[in-house]
């Protein structure tokens, strides 16, 4: 890693609890620009909670988030998007009843005329831009005016990722993007993620699939019981070591690894 470049994301002492449950605590980590980082850990380890904090979906109870050199205190996902952080959620992101174009431009519509809520949508311009967006990401959709509901899981995830990547975003967060997909569809999404690496876009990938993590990512951050127990470079670690860190078995106590 090039020590001269400043980190893209720096999280310090991040903390979140839900009632009595401590979902995240004492979390410190740094991501470099363009880094493809995996976040792994057992169920309930705090991965999704971490994602919600840095994507602005929820506010942390303590700690700080620095992005691109600026202190961030996101009050909404819109603010996170504003600085260049985009998030693809497993199931939640697309509106099934709407078509591809309406979904791609959700919250970022192009207009003929700007008048607040009464702004007139420019669907022609959005259609044109949609073709470019999907091409850049390498997603193939039979019809842009088809509803999301009729599409395969791979196509949906493709639309969601195209939406996240097409806005000069610096960091794209993918929370288990292939969990519900078949083998071929998973392959399609993985190709899209490789494309993001070539484009220099940073990625945080939450995944339970270690094969995928080792194939696609540069670094691995292991979460256990709301804490970061270690960071590894894919080039110098093994799946066995990561599994030991995830489960905490084999003398893998937090201190040894950090």
């Amino acid at each position: 890693m090039n020590v001269a470049t400043a980190p893209l994301l720096r999280v310090t002492d991040l903390e979140k609890h839900y009632g009595g449950v401590i979902a995240l605590s004492e979390l410190d980590l740094q991501l470099m620009p363009g880094e493809h980082a995996a976040v792994v850990g057992d169920n309930g380890a705090g991965k999704s909670t971490f994602v919600r904090m840095i994507s602005g979906a929820e506010r942390p109870d303590g700690g700080s988030i620095m992005f691109d050199g600026a202190e961030c205190n996101f009050r909404s996902p819109l603010e996170a998007r504003g600085v260049g952080i985009e998030t693809v959620y497993q199931d939640l992101s697309l509106a099934d009843d709407l078509d591809v174009i309406d979904n791609l431009f959700m919250g970022r519509e192009l207009f003929h005329l700007k008048l607040g809520g009464l702004s007139i949508l420019n669907r022609k311009a959005m259609r044109k831009r949609a073709h470019e967006l999907l091409d850049e990401v390498g997603v193939r959709i039979p019809s842009l005016s088809g509803r999301i509901r009729g599409m395969s899981g791979g196509q949906r995830q493709g639309v969601a990722i195209a939406r996240a990547s097409g806005w000069g975003s610096k960091l794209i967060i993918l929370d288990e993007p292939t969990a519900a997909l078949g083998v071929r569809e998973t392959g399609q999404v993985e190709d899209i993620i490789r494309g993001l690496k070539q484009a220099g876009t940073g990625v945080v990938l939450v995944s339970h699939n270690l094969r995928q993590v080792f194939d696609l990512m540069d670094t691995i951050y292991v979460f256990r019981r709301g804490k970061l127990v270690g960071r590894r470079d894919v080039a110098t670690t093994t799946p066995q070591e990561i599994v030991a860190m995830i489960t905490g078995v084999g003398g893998a106590e937090a201190g040894e690894f950090v």
Binding site: L78, D96, E109, F111, L118, I120
Partner: peptide, 22 residues
């Protein structure tokens, strides 16, 4: 209009639409 599109979006997937920044 924008608000019209968003009415469909909110009715279809409210939390997802919220997370899109609407």
């Amino acid at each position: 209009t924008l608000i019209g599109k968003l009415m469909y979006a909110v009715g279809s997937n409210r939390e997802g639409t919220r997370r899109s920044g609407v």
